[in-house]
Design a protein around this nucleic acid. Structure first.
Ligand SMILES: [Mn+2]
Ligand SMILES: [Mn+2]
Ligand SMILES: [Mn+2]
Ligand SMILES: [Mn+2]
Lengths: 221, 221
DNA sequence: GCCAATTTTTAGGCGTATCTAAAAATTATT
DNA sequence: AATAATTTTTAGATACGCCTAAAAATTGGC
């Protein structure tokens, strides 16, 4: 059994591993966990003894296959609870994260699997992120950051890179939601801002926004 | 904000207060929490500083009205989650307690209240215990232990005194459930066992069983 | 009211998770 | 290759929640 703190570290390392495939640095973990590098060192030494990560001094860490399974099960719970909150309890997508951070640590395989059944085995959470199955497997959607699209390209909005309330509420305000088709009708080289078209509406967004929206490219675009 | 441990102490004191109305002793708390009296002393000193209990050395503790409200809100969450698990996720009444012990510590007023709404504002949990409202109020059902009933008396089974799996599974096996009408058709002075009648069926139960079942007496019985 | 039994508190210590400050190792720069 | 900058680890502290053993207070029997 793992403490809540250990689980949070495993989850952070899991998420950092999705980006860089090299060893995850102490600093990167410290930043993600909003803690100090020295605290991270303490913890990775403990996690290493428990065989959930590979760790050699000064060389960063990697999850063992065992550790990855544990991390995936926490992510599974987090995302299932997010679906529950939105679908059943009238939460909006910008309100669920904090609560799911707590619920993901509830230890009861029966609860997790019954919840999955109750929700109809959802494949994605409210932010478009994939929900791992019991074995920790999930499929990565083919997706690109909106910022990388060229002029004239279009695609479906399928996810967000930032799940902060601020960003999600901004999207609500701009009436951008998952599933919408977005077309790039202008790109400003100076500041990276983009002119978008969403179902007849046309408006512009900053580069920062474009770097936090995931798009699935439409074939032939 | 209170730690999980602090919340568990508050809940234990709350439950002990329902029985004895005098100061709750260090020993009683230690027994309920399966911990040592010295640990209890440490904690009650901390809780006293936080103004959630009244505490004077050697004189036991009592909840302040503030502390009682916090404790009631934890009990509220515990029982709402138990209802959720049974009604929505196919848990049986003997499986819910351990999971509810975890879920009761999730901090989100919106979650609690939306859950309450989702469940249709239940008044009792699966074991017949009352669910406090937002303000911490709840009504105590008029109920007596089955063991206190006299020969020929009858009533409705409305609760259990012991929520252990062993006991609840025994009740399932004997087909005794909340809502059933029970009539006492025999009492054995020697061992306190009782002969019961439940809808045409007649069988006998030990005194220990009779001391863990709550009955609402039928008027004119 | 006194002594013994019981209860409760205190003293001192341990493991977890965190921190700051200092030391050590690695990486980058000239 | 030497030095400077950065990263990482270690050393030493603190708060929490728990323990055992010992001391202090209360309670109960006579
Ligand atoms: Mn978490
Ligand atoms: Mn999410
Ligand atoms: Mn609990
Ligand atoms: Mn219950």
């Amino acid at each position: 059994m793992y403490t809540q703190t250990e689980e949070n570290y495993l989850k952070a390392i899991f998420h950092l591993s999705e980006i860089s495939s090299t060893g995850i640095s102490t600093n990167a973990i410290a930043k993600k966990m909003a803690t100090k590098p020295s605290s991270v060192t303490d913890m990775v030494q403990k996690l290493s003894e428990k065989k959930v990560i590979h760790y050699k001094k000064y060389q960063g860490v990697l999850l063992t296959s065992y550790g990855r399974k544990i991390a995936a099960s926490i992510v599974r719970k987090h995302r299932l609870w997010e679906v529950f909150l939105v679908e059943k309890l009238n939460f909006s997508w910008d309100e669920v994260h904090e609560v799911a951070e707590q619920l993901e640590h509830i230890k009861s395989p029966k609860l997790t699997n019954e919840l999955d059944t109750f929700l109809g085995f959802p494949k994605q959470d409210p932010h478009g992120d994939p929900i791992p199955d019991k074995e920790g497997n999930y499929d990565l959607l083919e997706k690109k950051l909106l910022a990388t699209l060229g002029l004239g390209q279009s695609g479906i909005c399928v996810g967000v890179n930032d799940s902060s309330s601020d960003f999600l509420q901004f999207l609500d305000k701009q009436k951008i939601a998952l599933g919408y088709e977005i077309k790039v009708v202008g790109k400003e080289p100076f500041d990276g801002s983009m002119q978008l078209q969403i179902s007849n509406r046309e408006f512009s967004i900053s580069n920062k926004i474009a770097n936090n929206l995931y798009i699935k490219i439409l074939p032939g675009s």
